[in-house]
Amino acid sequence: MNSSFELKQWESDFFNRKIFSFNYKSGLSMIKNFPVNSLIDIKLDARDYDAIDFVNRNSFEFIEGEICFKREVRDESYFSLNGQGLENYIATFEAIEELKLTVTGLYENSRFREPWFNVSERDSFYRKWIENAVLSKFDDCCLILKDRGRISGFVTIRLKSDVATIGLIGVPKPYQGQGVAKNLLELTFEYCKSRNIKTVSVATQLSNVSASKLYIKSGFTISDVFYWFYKKV
């Protein structure tokens, strides 16, 4: 196999098809044979015009833009714990089934969308993601907020050195527009502060204007912009 193509083993196994990531840095002019019967994805810096021109010439299809944000964690109070410890906001095994129901249908604008992935595949992907976050198998934890015993919002967090990356953040439709997402970010800052995390990063689709507005209003600044492309061979 050409070294420009890296098999994404977990996604290939999960979706039961060959999915490759295209490493264009190995030399754009050297690519001649793409792996057959596969889906190839590539994530490009929005300023890398040579690579964007290359994928356009080679019949890749634009999928979505991704905008990345960062914010420093300062030594201040972000979220009122109401006398509870932070551990009371960390989702446990008992919350998994409710979280799976919560994410179903929530990410309609995901890059895992039709015609490349059907709705069932997309929802299954996010159900597995949230389960793995609770079990600390990918993200390190999942924080949740509740309203009268029901989950009103969740956020998954992955820690590496002194940086925390938000994986999934979601608010069920009955609770949207009530400031829950803002509270989730503040809870995230409080959690990160307790673990001496210096920076929080998060990414969202360029088309998700409301999320971008929320992050900017919450003190995040733009760090990068990327484009996703797919090629079905």
Rank of each mutant, 00 (worst) to 15 (best):
E6Y: 11
E6C: 10
E6V: 15
Q9K: 15
W10C: 03
E11D: 15
E11P: 01
R17F: 02
R17N: 01
I19K: 00
I19P: 00
S21C: 09
N23K: 15
S26P: 00
L28H: 09
I31R: 04
K32E: 13
D41R: 04
D41L: 06
K43N: 11
K43V: 10
L44V: 13
D48Y: 09
N58C: 08
I63M: 12
E64S: 15
G65Q: 12
G65T: 14
K70L: 12
R71D: 01
V73W: 03
R74L: 15
D75K: 10
S80M: 06
T92E: 12
F93T: 13
F93P: 00
L101G: 15
V103E: 05
T104M: 05
G105M: 10
L106S: 06
E108M: 08
E108Q: 12
R111D: 02
F112N: 01
F112H: 04
E114W: 10
W116G: 00
F117H: 05
N118Y: 09
S120Y: 11
E121P: 05
E121D: 09
R122H: 07
R122E: 06
Y126W: 11
K128G: 00
K128E: 15
E131W: 04
E131T: 14
V134N: 03
K137C: 09
F138E: 14
C141Q: 08
K146G: 01
G149M: 08
G153C: 07
I157T: 04
L159D: 04
V163S: 02
I169Y: 03
I169G: 11
G170S: 06
P172N: 11
Q176E: 14
L185E: 04
L187K: 05
T188K: 01
F189W: 05
F189K: 09
K198N: 14
T199E: 11
S201Y: 09
V202I: 15
T204E: 05
Q205G: 11
S207Y: 07
A211R: 02
S212W: 03
S212L: 06
K213P: 01
L214Q: 07
S218V: 05
S223I: 13
D224P: 01
V225Y: 09
V225L: 10
F226E: 11
K231C: 09
K231I: 03
K232I: 08
K232A: 07
V233Y: 14
